[in-house]
Design a protein around this nucleic acid. Structure first.
Length: 427
RNA sequence: GCGAGCGUAGCCAAGGGGUUAAGGCAGCGGAUUGUGGUUCCGCCAUUCGUGGGUUCAAGUCCCAUCGUUCGCCCCA
């Protein structure tokens, strides 16, 4: 029998590392909640058409990275490759726009893309995302970005850099696209093959090619910022001013283009140098056309997504996880004592303590070793003598101090124990 | 989809054609059968991802395959 392994590009999150995930999720819930974002949970699979329409047929995500399958009813379904399309679908389906005023939504969960795994990239990965729907005001962009930055700050992440750009509206982009193609065409022969291919399909993407020669050519290329209409340019200036006022550092990078079709105006990425080739921890921007594209009313919107695996990769470099500790480890030997031990454990657990029962029936010495290994603050000991007179021996492992306590008194002494444990942790 | 590197125990590994597969951590047992953290002793891979080939001889060389890592593409 060969053992079955987790699929390529998927990972088990084991108890030893789950602490990071819980910490990130708790912090996200807190920070987003404080900014009045409300959590939404949508299905992890949807009609394929949702993503085809929402993300764009021409994108790589839709073109070659989706987990698409046919169910028993011959419907084409797809495991969600990102979270925005589903959130917007729910927004439209449940007419959340009718509530009046902008809606602030956030989500967190697994996403799926069929890609070759590498550092910071998996086939099933997790994102935390936020969407602010119903405001086209430049302040909405700023609010969205500020929440993302606040979340990363609260997690203690340092030395991140934010790249900011405006890709204008549809008209601006069409103008710019023409300019860019005009500029690049004479260099066609010098471009790398991928970029040659993109010249017709998606010329803006050539700008962030990693090939040195291509980068060199792009140095002199026209900037999209020069192609913005006065209105788009003013809007972008407003976003920058507000970020500066909030003390949020950024650098304008006119070559930042995002991969999904639905972006317009503000685009931003937060990157780290400590992630290998996949440097982006958070990416987002404005997507004014998406809601109507998905059958809702004309609704401007802005949002972002954070890659949780990448985030946790950074956290792990920062701080080791403090292991879960046990307050009491219950050591027992002898039939009567073992029976009583179960009750003692129950009483202590009801008192709010983390209690582990030794189930081995081995020598006391062995049981103490295990108590040590799980980092217990104290051992509760029950042998024949204790069982006989209804007491336990309570031994504090750090000091070695040991005392006899009546089993009936354990509940009443909970507060006293709690103080002793707290004291020990502080030391 | 393309390119490169790597697969020896639960983990980290040495060994790069000559035969008893180092060592460390962890684990288990004992010294110590009612008291842990230290110490000491012992045990822990008939086998080196899998299949085939070369050779008198293969973890060691070759091929294939699977897995994994890193990079490209793309993205969080």
């Amino acid at each position: 029998m060969t053992a079955i392994q987790a699929l390529r590009g998927t990972k088990d999150i084991l108890p030893t590392e789950i602490g990071y995930w819980q910490h990130v999720e708790a912090t996200a819930r807190q920070v987003l909640g404080r900014a009045a974002f409300r959590e939404i949970r949508t299905p992890i699979f949807e009609q394929t058409e949702l993503f085809a329409r929402g993300i764009g047929e021409a994108t790589d995500v839709v073109g070659k990275e989706m987990y698409t399958f046919t169910d028993r009813g011959d419907r084409s379904l797809t495991l969600r490759p990102e979270g925005t399309a589903g959130a917007v679908r729910a927004f439209v389906e449940h007419k959340l726009f009718a509530a009046g005023g902008p809606q602030r939504l956030w989500y967190c969960g697994p996403m799926f893309r069929y890609e070759r795994p590498q550092a910071g990239r998996q086939r099933q990965f997790h994102q935390i995302g936020a969407e602010l729907l119903g405001s086209g005001d430049a302040r909405a962009d700023v609010e969205a970005i500020a929440v993302a930055v606040e979340l990363l700050n609260c997690l203690g992440l340092k030395s991140l850099r934010m790249l900011l750009n405006s890709v204008g509206d549809r008209v601006d982009r069409a103008t710019y696209r023409a300019q860019l193609v005009d500029y690049l065409t004479p260099y066609f022969a010098d471009l790398d093959p991928d970029s040659q291919d993109r010249l017709n399909r998606n010329p803006l993407r050539i700008l962030d090619s990693k090939v040195a020669k291509t980068q060199e050519i792009c140095q002199e290329a026209p900037s999209i910022l020069d192609a913005l209409s006065p209105e788009s340019a003013a809007r972008f200036a407003k976003v920058q001013q507000a970020l500066t006022d909030l003390g949020i550092a950024y650098q304008v990078d006119s070559r930042l283009v995002r991969g999904l079709d639905y972006y317009s105006h503000t685009a931003f990425e937060i990157q780290s140098d400590d992630l290998g080739a996949q440097a982006t921890v958070c990416g987002g921007g404005r997507y004014d056309g998406l809601v109507s594209e998905l059958g809702g009313p004309e609704t401007p919107a802005v949002g972002w997504a954070i890659g949780m695996e990448r985030l946790i990769l950074l956290l792990q470099q920062l701080q080791p996880l403090t292991g879960d500790r046990v307050d009491f480890y219950v050591v027992s030997r002898g039939e009567q004592a073992e029976q009583q031990a179960l009750k003692v454990a129950k009483v202590l657990r009801q008192g709010g303590f983390a209690v582990e029962m030794d189930l081995s029936a081995s020598a006391f010495g062995k049981q103490f070793k295990r108590a040590d290994r799980v980092g217990a603050a104290a051992c509760v000991i029950l042998g024949d003598a204790e069982a006989e007179n209804g007491t336990v021996q309570l031994k504090w492992l750090a000091s070695g101090h040991q005392e006899a306590i009546a089993q009936a008194d354990l509940a009443a002494k909970a507060e006293q124990f709690r103080q002793q444990i707290t004291q020990q942790i502080l030391q």
